[in-house]
């Protein structure tokens, strides 16, 4: 697809994610195959339907703060080249198996391992290994970029949290603990009943008394 995905959805490049989702939903409804049964335009609508889906997927992918691609190196050993090929073809499991068999744990090894682990869903290990690669070769921009990308996802998460009221930093200003106790009694129905029956503004205070 060479057309601009934003044009397909009729939104600007700067549209927020939620605006894109809204446009996507509206268009899908408009071109839904169910509305074109026994209609000569059915074929056209179906094509449009697919185009909208593709455009949406593409935008979401482009906006993802994921890995911007893996760089191979001409200095890689034959084994490491194979690892690189596995990773590039999305076969993270094989890449990990092969990495396990390589005894030399260079910075590059940790770099590849981080990528393959991230792809396989081993996000704790991916992070450790990305950090290890950077520690071993702090000047390598490929490694620092990878670490930045992984950290970027965490930053996005932390920034999106409104109150910031959890954690050990004493920032929890809105009584997270009291709330926790109320919702955590295990007596779910009581909690809800209480919250429901009491005045909303008092609800938070009453729950811990149960």
């Amino acid at each position: 697809m060479t057309t601009n995905p934003y044009q397909v959805l009729g939104v600007s490049q700067n549209a927020s994610n939620d605006e894109i989702k809204k446009a996507y939903r509206d268009l899908l409804k408009k071109y839904h195959p169910d509305s074109y049964v026994n209609n000569p335009l059915a074929g056209l609508a179906e094509e449009k339907f697919k185009e909208i889906q593709e455009a949406y997927d593409r935008i979401m992918k482009e906006r993802e703060s994921g890995y911007s691609g893996v760089g191979g190196s001409e200095f890689d050993s034959d084994e490491m080249k194979m690892v690189y090929n596995y990773i590039n073809s999305g076969n993270n499991v094989e890449a990990l198996k092969l990495l396990e068999r390589i005894p030399l744990r260079s910075a590059r090894w940790y770099y590849y391992s981080a990528i393959a682990n991230a792809g396989a869903g081993n996000n704790v290990r991916a992070f450790d290994h990305a950090r290890q690669a950077v520690n071993m070769e702090p000047t390598n921009t490929e490694y620092t970029n990878l670490l930045n990308q992984l950290e970027g996802q965490e930053r996005r998460y932390q920034n999106n949290r409104y109150g910031g009221g959890y954690g050990n930093n004493g920032a929890g200003g809105f009584g997270a603990a009291g709330n926790g106790r109320g919702l955590g009694t295990g007596n779910l129905c009581c909690d809800l009943w209480c919250a429901d029956s009491c005045c909303e503004c008092m609800g938070g205070d009453l729950i811990p008394c149960l």
Binding site: R25, N160, G165, A176, G180
Partner: peptide, 26 residues
């Protein structure tokens, strides 16, 4: 965030970004 969820999205985000920490805090 890649899913086109619009309905009740504030509730969903409330759970995913804040609510899941209730127990940890406690």
């Amino acid at each position: 965030e890649k899913l086109p969820c619009l309905y009740d999205v504030t509730i969903l985000r409330n759970i995913l970004y804040e609510g899941v920490w209730t127990k940890f805090n406690k």
